[in-house]
């Protein structure tokens, strides 16, 4: 699996997030090179990504609430 070093700004919805979602790449923190922790919901969608070494380096939360309700 390809190792990719990413910042928060580089994790976009068009390219990177779908690739992470599909498990095509292994994302790592661009600042400390540590592996990024991927948190998935019950249905498999990613709801959080954070740096495993220091969450201040990278920490994204996704909120899918309304779509799951509707």
């Amino acid at each position: 699996m390809e190792v990719v070093y990413l910042t928060e700004a580089e994790i976009d919805h068009e390219v990177m997030l779908p690739r992470i979602q599909a498990g095509e790449i292994k994302p790592h923190c661009a600042r400390c090179k540590a592996e990024l922790k991927i948190h998935r919901m019950r249905d498999g969608r990613i709801h959080a990504i954070e740096c495993s070494k220091n969450p201040n380096h990278l920490g994204i939360r996704y909120n899918y609430k309304s779509s799951s309700e509707s």
Partner: peptide
């Protein structure tokens, strides 16, 4: 918008 996504929070940004 990305499908199904309401919002997101970016810690470092």
């Amino acid at each position: 918008p990305p499908p199904g996504l309401d919002g997101e929070a970016l810690r470092f940004e």
